[in-house]
């Protein structure tokens, strides 16, 4: 059978087992993927570091010190300083909060919109389904980055006028990145709905008089969640990259908010005499995205029902 080979090379096959709940089962399969477990630990450490790091390493992110400009790593400044003598460790920790928050919030937007569109299309079928899928395909062929740049260029001033520069850009970036990433989730959910709604257990629930919302929320959606969780994980990584790209182009958050991409943007013209300035935030992005991708791969092995071994 074509489906008998797991997609990931780094997972090893499972041994025979006794009766366990689905989540225990998923956890057991996830553990088999060693790189995914290591990545989950690294990711947890990274999240912990950006959450409590600024409390422990209580150096202000905007303390200007011209006597310590462009210094390499030292005990006083573990990751060195930038051209204004600001501490890069403090800035990377603070920027990590923003980058991770954008990643998770944009993922939430994408998953909610995608699940809604996919569920409506999958339950309705017919014309509505065709129209929604046409919309999905249209969004899939939109050039994401140019449109992101266009929308941020057009709307930034108006929104920052209403809710302040930080919140305004945050809302804008999260909505727009999420708004360009819901399509894969919608397709997945629709496909799952199509197969699940014909299953006997759904038929049985319908025969018992379950209402349509109850059918969707209690019976179909929970069973469609596995692939959605996997797609959501990958979306976090993609959203972090998208936000960093915007900031790297100088068009994301305002200059006084040091997101990882923004630090790289500031560092890129000083590469020849202060490489540490670019390398540490870059490594932070890379490590975060890599560990999220590996966790996603592990979750795929753990949650995808087609891969039951």
């Amino acid at each position: 059978m074509a489906g008998s080979i797991p997609a990931s090379a780094t997972a090893s096959p499972a041994a025979p087992r006794k009766r366990v709940t689905p989540w225990q089962e998923a956890w057991r399969r996830f553990r088999k993927h060693r790189l995914a477990v290591v990545s989950a630990v690294i990711l947890a450490l990274l999240i912990l570091a950006v959450l409590i790091g600024p409390l422990i390493w209580a150096v202000p992110i905007d303390e200007i010190d011209f006597t310590a400009r462009l210094q390499g790593p030292s005990w006083e400044h573990p990751l060195g300083t930038d051209d204004l003598g600001q501490d890069i460790l403090a800035r990377v920790l603070y920027g990590g909060r923003i980058s991770l928050a954008v990643g998770f919030a944009a993922m939430a937007v994408a998953v909610v919109v995608g699940t809604f569109v996919g569920a409506v299309a999958g339950m309705a079928g017919g014309r509505l389904d065709a129209a929604l899928m046409w919309l999905t395909d249209l969004f899939l062929s939109l050039p994401e980055l140019p449109l992101l740049l266009l929308i941020i260029y057009l709307f930034r001033d108006a929104l920052t006028g209403i809710v302040g520069p930080e919140m305004g850009v945050f809302i804008l970036i999260v909505t727009v990145i999420g708004g360009f990433r819901w399509m894969p989730v919608a397709r997945l959910v629709r496909a799952q709905f199509f197969s699940l709604r014909e299953k006997e257990f759904v038929e049985a629930a319908r025969a018992l008089g379950a209402s349509r919302p109850r059918l969707v929320l209690r019976h179909i959606l929970p069973n469609a969640l596995g692939p959605v969780i996997v797609a959501a994980t990958i979306d976090v990584a993609a959203a972090i990259i998208a936000e960093s790209t915007l900031s790297f182009l100088g068009l994301g958050f305002p200059p006084d908010i040091p997101t990882w991409g923004r630090i790289l943007f500031d560092a890129k013209d000083n590469l020849d005499f202060a490489p540490h300035w670019a390398i540490f935030p870059g490594l932070a992005i890379f490590l975060t995205v890599l560990s999220i991708n590996f966790v996603g791969d592990g979750l795929r092995d753990a949650l995808d029902p087609r891969r039951v071994k």
Binding site: S8, T10, T245, F248, L264, L271, G282, I285, F286
Partner: peptide, 28 residues
């Protein structure tokens, strides 16, 4: 296994960071 791991590393490295690393290594 090596190819798979390298592939993961490859598409987890954002293009702007690889670009800077390349400049650092090959130009500077």
């Amino acid at each position: 296994q090596i190819a798979n791991t390298l592939a993961f590393v490859g598409f987890s490295l954002p293009t702007f960071f690889t670009g800077l690393l390349f400049i650092l290594l090959f130009s500077i």
